[in-house]
Design a protein around this nucleic acid. Structure first.
Lengths: 210, 210
DNA sequence: TGTACATCAGTGAACGCGCGTTCACTGATGTAC
DNA sequence: TGTACATCAGTGAACGCGCGTTCACTGATGTAC
């Protein structure tokens, strides 16, 4: 009930994001959104010429938000350790914690959601989606490369694949988390990914279990 | 174009599965399905009282098919090795191959698809969904337990989580695979999961890279 | 300081189409006796 | 061997509602001169 002075367009985006993540794009009606925001239907079409324009705006917004989360976690981790491996491990723990702290369940992943409604969107939306995933790949790959420079990996591994695996475990974790109704499943899976990275790179004799 | 003598009901299920995995449940219209099958709309409602009845039937069928795939892979692996770890690793390789060989891209994961359309379905569909995921968890957990009896895990790990991780990587892999348009991404991720299991359990001095 | 025009953020009514659903009916095959 | 009835696998026409979209219009605020 806090619509105070935030512009209606923002409110629509907010409401749409929640609804779409909860039940999918085509199941979310414009009527529903305008009811929540308190605006007429034509008011909606003033802000978004099309329903697909809404999708595009939403996706871009979502990706930006995600990038901020990543930036924050990595920056914080870098401040705590100069070692690329340790910093990465810290960042993963922070990210797991972020997902754990999400108030009413985690936000779900827009990318995955749109993936399952592919045909509904135009090529551009799909391109944005792909670009976002690839940007996460390079982001993680850079980190992993710096780790691999300092630590000999225990097994032969494709760095792109290992970088992708974060997104894979993220998306898959959200799905399982929802399906079985266990909020803590996602962060636990992310920590499992973290264990994997550690097993690959951390020198063998160490045993610093807390 | 091979509808020869397979009953219309089967044909509907077949068409519906393909369409739903491709574009979601609510985006798949009955008109579309009957057009493909060559039947009238009322013919459809003769077989399925409701659209949600179709969803239920579809999900059950899908889960059965998946179980068959799992059974086959594990049986074949068991025939090749009596050691629980090696057998599991073989099975994972077989499963990765199965997903790789899927003719026109892998089938996608019904569970995930339904997850992203939750609100559209009744409680029963969601229960079936959850039950399926949990059955996979126990299936994998049993295998992993037998491994852990024989091999000391290198790190402390929750066995349920490790079991779940297969589904997580499967679902997440399907999503990423689609989004970036790289069919081979899913099997490669599954092999990464396999590497993880190996790193956890395989005695340390071994180096049997092929 | 007042008038003219432009832009912004909407309103209200209407439309038309697609979609899920219903209902009365049908022609072919199976079963009882 | 023929008749009566039941079941199976549909057909065809109609309905009604929700949803995305359009269009002409409006009242408040900003800008030029």
């Amino acid at each position: 009930m806090a619509n105070l002075d935030v512009p209606k367009k923002q409110q629509i985006l907010e409401a749409a994001q929640a609804a779409i993540l909860a039940k999918g794009f085509s199941a979310t009606s414009i009527d529903e959104l305008i009811a929540e925001v308190g605006i007429s239907k034509s008011g909606f079409f003033y802000h978004f010429r099309d329903k697909t324009i809404l999708a595009r705006a939403l996706l871009e917004r979502y990706i930006e938000q995600d990038d901020v989360v990543f930036d924050r976690a990595f920056d914080e981790a870098d401040a705590l350790s100069e070692d690329p491996l340790h910093s990465f491990l810290i960042a993963l723990k922070l990210l797991a914690k972020v997902f754990d702290d999400m108030p009413n369940g985690h936000p779900g992943c827009m990318v995955a959601c749109i993936c399952y409604h592919e045909q509904l969107f135009d090529q551009e939306v799909r391109n944005i989606n792909a670009k976002a995933v690839l940007s996460w790949r390079t982001r993680f790959r850079k980190r992993i490369e710096r780790i691999a420079e300092r630590y000999e990996p225990r097994i032969n591994i494709d760095l792109d694949d290992l970088a992708d695996m974060f997104s894979v475990v993220g998306d898959g974790g959200i799905i399982l988390s929802r399906v079985v109704g266990d909020k803590s499943l996602l962060p636990r899976q992310l920590l499992l990914y973290r264990d994997f990275v550690r097993l690959i790179f951390e020198p063998v004799q160490v045993s610093d279990k807390p």
